[in-house]
Write a protein that binds this DNA or RNA. Sequence first.
DNA 1: CAACCCTGAATTGTTGACAATAAACTCACT
DNA 2: AGTGAGTTTATTGTCAACAATTCAGGGTTG
Lengths: 234, 234
Amino acid sequence: MNDSSTQVADIDSSSDTKTLSGQTTAALREAIIKGVFAPGEKLNEPKLAEQFQVSRGPLREAIRRLVAMRLVRHVPHVGATVVTLELESILELYDVREALEGKAAALAAENMSEEDIEKLRKLLELHRKHTQDNEGEYMQTEGDFDFHYQIIKGSGNQLLTDQLCDELYHLIRMFRFQTSRFKSRSNRALIEHEQLIYAIEQRDPELAEMLMRKHISRAKNSIRKALTSQSLSD
Amino acid sequence: MNDSSTQVADIDSSSDTKTLSGQTTAALREAIIKGVFAPGEKLNEPKLAEQFQVSRGPLREAIRRLVAMRLVRHVPHVGATVVTLELESILELYDVREALEGKAAALAAENMSEEDIEKLRKLLELHRKHTQDNEGEYMQTEGDFDFHYQIIKGSGNQLLTDQLCDELYHLIRMFRFQTSRFKSRSNRALIEHEQLIYAIEQRDPELAEMLMRKHISRAKNSIRKALTSQSLSD
DNA sequence: CAACCCTGAATTGTTGACAATAAACTCACT
DNA sequence: AGTGAGTTTATTGTCAACAATTCAGGGTTG
């Protein structure tokens, strides 16, 4: 019944809790995102298998799935390494997000049910309240994607949803974790989310798409500024 | 040196010719795309392993990679099946293409080198000639994506290129193979490609994006018309 | 002293056997 | 006769041993 407290398990449909390789995938994924394994670090199969208490079979399968999620790179006969998020890659990611989530917003304006729009507005009010009370830190960041997630799901396009929520989402999470000390633009985000909801309520696909694209484009620019002036690893 | 005769192996970077699982991935992928395994068909691991002369290990890995490419669906403890391309899924795919390739065209207009634009124009002239001589059938269809492929690569965005050329491309190929008896709109496509090149030459990202989006949107509509009036399996 | 080859250790790729789960079939019971 | 539980069978998931390849180190040679 609580719409706002969406767990990771709900968002991600690629985690099989039933099978060992699925559990290992989830565990390794979270470890990589949280920085337990540093960017660029080699993933040694026997050691990891020992660490996660599984055989090399399921572990290899987990690695392959993370390769598909672009969290891990793999070279035949050499091995797997954790990806390093260069500024260049992040900017590329935000261009892809702009394209995909822009389209998602347009489709959401067309297809989203009235009840779902209602929920979305309530979610926004929750964020507004949270930002007023606290100063809007990490929890806000997770919640921010929750907002985006509801719109993506509202598009009704399964392929689009899978691409964004199963694959790219974890890359975004990883990046956000690495740069969580940066105060994100919560006030501007709130305003832009408000405009976005309005466009969806008005059933205006073109406006919704443009607003979403500008929203993400601005986030991209603020990231570029923040990361070119001061290095990530200082 | 021959820019136009791009082979599948060139487009796809996910096929390891060195490793068995890579070869199996490529073989199984082509078999599925070409219809050797019918849509919805169960993929029996022991039988396939026997058929491809490999052990179950590499075969399972191949299946997982095809799952990531969305050519195969997988349910834990039940097994893998070839995807069935419903009209709904195809339309979803074209919406995603519209978003991604639209952005790719915009980026190509910004980043593509003069030499690459030159090559692109030569490729278009080749298509024009081919369409005049013959009546523009399957070869044109493959070449058509080659044109799109050059633009995608010209975007300079590696993530975008991977998503389109490694993952979604094979889904498109599968759909095209299944509906190859439909005469595709080669004349209109040529005109629209011509306009697209012009926009890129003029370094006009907004125009290039809009033209590409309309181009794909029209293709989507013509598919919808063709497949709603007459069923696929008649 | 640097470059090259050769050898060995470590790691990945592959295989076949074993365990666990799900589907199919049989048979009793209502 | 149809439904349901129990059993059987086929298939998937997992494991540990084997083969192939890469990389590092030492030694030799120009």
